[in-house]
Design a protein around this nucleic acid. Structure first.
Lengths: 346, 346
DNA sequence: CACGATAACGCAATCGATTGTTTAATTTTC
DNA sequence: GAAAATTAAACAATCGATTGCGTTATCGTG
């Protein structure tokens, strides 16, 4: 049952009395093959249900039409939307995608990168894990000219394409918004500071305070390891127990923000009147929680598509294609919902 | 820069004065190679940073260590958790996964399946799209002995492995629960009836009504094309405008259930007192919406792992491995939250 | 008519790993 | 000590597509 050999260009060649090379060329409209022959070959290929062996072609060309993707966790709204975007753009051009997740473990990340490398991907798209502090496991790609696109969580010191959002400005605007709503003591749930995204968000927060003449109180800045719901709950409780609790919280993600909302409600704190809350990402839960969570949109799908285009452009090196900058910074925008809207703006 | 040829077993052979075949065998501990040689070869391979060319091996063996995965939409809680489970189990055994999404379009599904086939995957895991009514595009795999695992949304008439939940029982229990809570006029948001999952859920609902001596009122059964939030809202509004509105709704997914809750609240209907609601899937939003949504757990991650094990077992055909049944039916359980809890049970 | 140009196609090597079959070397056995 | 058995490693074909180069046929032109 497994014997059924696949139909190859050799079979086609034998059947049509052509050489395999002619078949190969005819199938891809090579200019040195006559129109008539091309038609004959294609028709026969169709009839016989010929399917090219990608592996053989890849081996010969030493590269596959496959893009490697590495995320931290597949089942996270941002990741899955990112992947969705990548896949849509890739399949449109006949490229496949190979997926791997690190589960935020450095060891896994290294192993996955190695596996993707071994799979001879023609490009790789990656977001760094929480534990990742150096990226030399990506060096191997650069060495053989395979493009690397870092997205969202990107390293500072690696020669590669990057696709990110402007975390600083987004955070600045979010914090500024809280201030506009009358908050004067704003807490911040920060993420691991060796990652650009959380560093940028913290800096934006700090600068917004400063610009508005507010004090930066370190006791209001809580840095979390993984920005999980549990951490969000603990931090909220801790903050509210202090003598001088905050009247606003800018959270580095929606998970902790929703967690903060739930905890505040449990504590009988009014949102946004007593404490206004704003998150980051616009996960599905953000619009469902009550009061609905103000947050920063994160164009994950769009970012994914852009990543793919980056890879393809590098691989195809088509002349005349509009040059996309090496580093793309996508726009975000503030989504103001009830959790921070004290003035009943629309 | 792209010239850097990869280091192959031929290079190793030359360096160590062995033949390529010996290198190949040594690297995989073939019994006809001496311990000493194996050690020498492995050490040299390590030193030279030798990495096997998977493409070449795959070509030779005519199959890759790659599992193809086809889902409807990657960025959906169920899909992404499923994929996550698949990936975890696969990478543990050194297998890669190739991902594709159909966006619930039949045309895309066929194209994706074809692409996965061409990629010579060693097995394929798929959930059918909304539009899919026949699965002959999967025949090609059976023909060459590549295992197919359908998961969740599975066809009735295809010789393959399947991994599903017991939709009928889950729905029966969910409906029964609503009845226990005192509901007597229960509506149902049904999905496309050519898909097993939605058929099973509807049947479970109907049978629970019958078993409890309740009338089955067709006007209370609303069949939706895609079970989207919009459809859920429209259906809820429609139902509540009738002379004799329902006092309970069993929804085929959480999206429409949450949508129903939001709509009911907008209409000033008390949940669960006036209308109790229960969903299906246990998406993240289910526990966040207010009142929290009762629902049916869907062990997506676990299902993914099982799918992978199915494939691997088929491929490896290891004797002595405990035989997993061809068709697995995983357990679900009712998660009772506020949206259906009239009696204040814990 | 002959020679160079062009078109259309075939030859054979190549990509790197795998494996059935041989050959060579070593050990065992009587 | 020689034949048989065992062990270790080499040979060469194979997987299927690709491609540089070579070959053959056709055509045009002086």
């Amino acid at each position: 049952m497994k014997k059924k050999k696949s139909f190859t260009i050799y079979d086609l060649a034998r059947k049509l009395n052509y050489s395999p090379s002619t078949i190969s060329r005819a199938l891809k409209n090579h200019h040195s093959i006559s129109e008539k022959t091309i038609e004959i070959v294609k028709k026969a290929a169709e009839e016989e249900g010929y399917r090219p062996n990608i592996l053989a072609a890849s081996l010969r060309n030493n590269q596959s039409k496959t893009i490697g993707v590495l995320v931290t966790r597949i089942n996270r709204p941002f990741s899955s939307s990112l992947i969705s975007g990548i896949e849509n753009a890739a399949s449109k051009e006949g490229y496949n995608i190979l997926i791997s997740q690190s589960n935020d473990l450095y060891k896994n990340e290294v192993a996955s990168v190695k596996a993707l490398f071994d799979s001879r991907v023609c490009g790789i798209i990656a977001t760094l894990g929480m534990e990742t502090e150096n990226v030399k496991h990506f060096d191997q790609f650069a060495k053989i000219g395979v493009p690397v696109v870092f997205v969202d969580r990107v390293p500072a010191d690696f020669e590669s394409y990057t696709v990110v959002i402007d975390n600083y400005t987004a955070a600045f605007n979010a914090t500024n918004h809280l201030i506009e709503q009358g908050c004067t003591r704003i807490a911040h749930f920060a993420g691991a500071q060796h990652l650009n995204v959380y560093r940028g968000r913290k800096k934006g927060y700090v600068d917004a305070l400063i610009k508005n003449g507010l004090a930066v109180d370190d006791s209001l800045i809580i840095t979390m390891k993984s920005l999980s719901a549990e951490e969000g709950e603990a931090a909220t409780e801790q903050l509210m127990q202090t003598a001088n609790p905050p009247d606003g919280i800018f959270c580095s993600n929606d998970t902790t923000a929703v967690s903060a909302i739930l905890t505040l409600k449990k504590l009988g704190v009014k949102i946004p009147e007593e404490v206004a809350v704003i998150g980051f990402n616009d996960d599905p839960i953000a619009s469902i929680v009550e009061p609905a969570l103000s947050t920063v949109s994160h164009p994950a799908q769009e970012m994914g598509e852009l990543c793919t285009r980056r890879i393809l452009q590098h691989v195809l090196k088509k002349e005349g294609t509009p040059k996309i900058e090496e580093r793309s910074v996508l726009d975000t925008h503030l989504i103001i919902r009830a959790s921070s809207n004290r003035k009943n703006n629309p």
